[in-house]
Structure formats: C-alpha cells, structure tokens
Amino acid sequence: MRPSTRTFLGLTAATAVLALGVPALASPALAAPAAAPRTAAVVASGDYDEYWGYHYSKYDDDSRAKAKGHVWTDDDDRVHLQGRLYDPHSPNRLCGYAQFKFETHDGDEKNYWARKCGSSGYAPFHFTQHEIDNLQVRVCYWDRHEGRKTLCGKWRYIYEADADNGEE
C-alpha cells in the first residue's frame, strides 16, 4: 500500500471515530472511572473505598514525616487501613511516627501506630478493626532520645461511617 493511501485511510478512520464515537468506550468496563469524591461517607458495608493523604507532622528544620494510604470496608463490617509512612530527611534522633485511632459508636477507641526511622524507603502498615464509626490519623515524630512523640500534626478524619446520614 502506498504511503499516501495509508495516510488517507488513517485520517478517514480517525475522522469516523471522532464523528461517530467508539461504542466500546461507552461500555462501563472500558470507560475511564469518574474521579471519586474525597469525602468520608459510606452507604452500606463493603461500599467504602478511599485513598487518603499525604498527612504531615510539624516541621523539624526542613524535614517533615508524612503518611498516605487507603481505607476500605469489607462485607463483614471490617474497616481496613493500609498505607505507608515516610521520613525522608529527619535527623538521626527523630523517627517518623503515625498514630491511628479507630472509634466505635460507643466511644471505645483502639489505637495503633507505625514508626519509620531512617531516610530510605518507607514503613508499610495495615490494620483492621470491626464495626468502626470513625478513623483518624495523626503524623508526628518519635524522639528516640526522649522516648516520646513530638512535633505532631493535627488529627485528621480519614473515615466516618455515618457522615452521610447526620448521626453523631
């Protein structure tokens, strides 16, 4: 086939696609997913699936610890929290530290934490709790010399089961 004929056929095909559309792209399986809202609402069990972060500690000179992750529910009313904690530039005495607070409708809390020391890579985490009303995250530093949290960022909600129905 001559190059001019090939070019003509290619342009004709492209024009037809633009004019008529491609039915395969209209199928839900092949269409690009719509951007998910960054809200923390769930309608029924197994329906929640959101990414969160980055959330940061306060500064230590030019350094901040940070965390990001994924929260989802399964069909057994379990809330899964998975993510990564980074501590890219802190001094040796400090480690990145993330706190996670799972709270039930009764006000009971279950707390977890992850720690990352050193600048290379990240510390992965994955926690699961059953029948949770909300989940919060806060990123801090862990001071190895003093054995305590320091330079903590704010608590941030990353999951709220009843956000859409007005219950408190």
Rank of each mutant, 00 (worst) to 15 (best):
94 L>P: 09
61 D>F: 07
96 G>K: 01
127 F>D: 03
101 K>L: 13
91 P>D: 09
142 W>P: 13
116 K>E: 12
135 L>Q: 04
44 A>Q: 12
71 V>D: 02
45 S>E: 14
38 R>F: 06
57 S>Y: 03
95 C>P: 09
65 A>T: 10
120 S>M: 11
97 Y>Q: 09
90 S>Q: 11
86 Y>D: 05
51 Y>C: 07
87 D>H: 02
75 D>C: 01
124 P>M: 06
139 V>C: 06
64 R>H: 13
116 K>R: 12
33 P>N: 04
72 W>F: 13
115 R>E: 15
73 T>F: 02
127 F>Y: 15
46 G>F: 05
102 F>M: 00
34 A>D: 13
70 H>T: 00
79 V>A: 02
33 P>A: 07
84 R>I: 02
121 G>Y: 03
71 V>I: 14
125 F>C: 13
128 T>E: 13
28 P>I: 08
148 R>I: 03
87 D>P: 01
66 K>M: 11
36 A>Q: 14
116 K>T: 10
122 Y>K: 03
88 P>G: 09
56 Y>W: 08
104 T>A: 10
61 D>K: 15
125 F>Y: 15
122 Y>S: 05
87 D>Y: 05
40 A>N: 14
132 I>V: 15
57 S>D: 01
102 F>W: 01
47 D>T: 13
130 H>F: 11
62 D>H: 11
97 Y>S: 14
105 H>A: 13
133 D>E: 15
76 D>S: 13
118 G>E: 02
61 D>P: 05
41 A>H: 03
143 D>H: 06
36 A>H: 12
111 N>W: 05
126 H>P: 05
75 D>P: 03
32 A>C: 08
120 S>F: 08
39 T>Q: 11
134 N>T: 09
80 H>R: 00
59 Y>L: 12
35 A>W: 07
144 R>W: 07
67 A>Q: 00
108 D>I: 01
83 G>N: 09
125 F>K: 02
103 E>L: 02
43 V>K: 14
86 Y>N: 05
90 S>E: 15
54 Y>T: 11
136 Q>I: 06
76 D>N: 13
77 D>Q: 06
64 R>F: 08
120 S>Y: 10
54 Y>F: 10
66 K>P: 03
89 H>W: 09
67 A>M: 05
132 I>E: 11
53 G>A: 07
95 C>R: 04
69 G>Y: 00
128 T>A: 11
94 L>M: 08
119 S>L: 10
65 A>M: 08
88 P>Y: 00
61 D>G: 07
62 D>S: 13
39 T>L: 13
65 A>R: 05
107 G>M: 02
105 H>G: 06
31 A>D: 15
73 T>P: 04
39 T>H: 10
59 Y>C: 10
